[in-house]
Amino acid sequence: MDNAQKEPLQSSLRVQELIYGLKISEVMTKKVFAVTRNCTMRDVQTIMKNNSITGVPVVDSRRVVGIVSMNDIMNALEKGAMDDVVTLWMVGEVQTLAEDMPLSFAISAFNKFSFRRFPVVNKKNELVGIITFRNINMALIRELSRQLREMESLHGGPPERSDSLDLVKVYQLHRYDFENGGKASSEIKKFLKERGIPPKIVRQVAVASYELEINLVAHSNGGMLSFDINADRIKISSHDRGPGIADVELAMTEGFSTANEWIRSQGFGAGMGLPNVKRVSDEFAIQSAVGMGTMVRAVINLKKEKKDEH
């Protein structure tokens, strides 16, 4: 119980798997109550009371400059300073989240910081929403019910055919577990080969997934690799729990690597991993935040338009 309270979401990797596809913007509360610098603590208290909320961001031309929580209100109340402007009592230097981050980044943020809520900002750094545990809980329940319904409807369907390409599979990977790094790719490769997928495409999928597996094992604190396959395309998603990439553009540069000697002794760390994933993929996307994690999504089409051979 103690542990569960200290780390409320630590054991929730399975849940994270379910929701890796959700973005913060799909989960957050969009109707945010915010105040400007010249509002008083009493104004904030009224907003909290009328709307049953416990945290109000302070904005200056839509940028978040602070946040006032119930705690700050109590402190001001104690000192009889409810007519002070919020800037005297708010907590500045607020940790915000970006709206296009995957939901798992928010879960990491809740694990890392003790805050109960995070203001969410858009690309221009303007406040667009707020995210709390409650939002995450609701999203999880929604997502779990949806998946349950899907499972139920699949249950009565036709038995799985051995030549069917439909497959959803998730693999867990741990830091420095080079022994198991590669198992997922080998299994997926076999699956595709047995179903008569052309060797060149099998190679593309195997290479992308293997590079991602190696990345998870060599560079992340652990994470998962998931496959979503149907007759049209193979979608590979890699999702880890940090440490995150400081400069994604640099990480995508051929030859750039942060690998240590040990990783190099295994024949890796030449700084070709991510560029190689991109090279073999028809669609490629990467998202990362320091302290939260990295997500890579690679799609390889099975029904290729006439593509240049090389």
Binding site: F178, G182, S185, G267
Partner: peptide
């Protein structure tokens, strides 16, 4: 190393 064999297998 095992990774050499794996990598060879991965590229077919």
């Amino acid at each position: 190393t095992e990774q050499s064999i794996r990598s060879a297998g991965i590229v077919g």
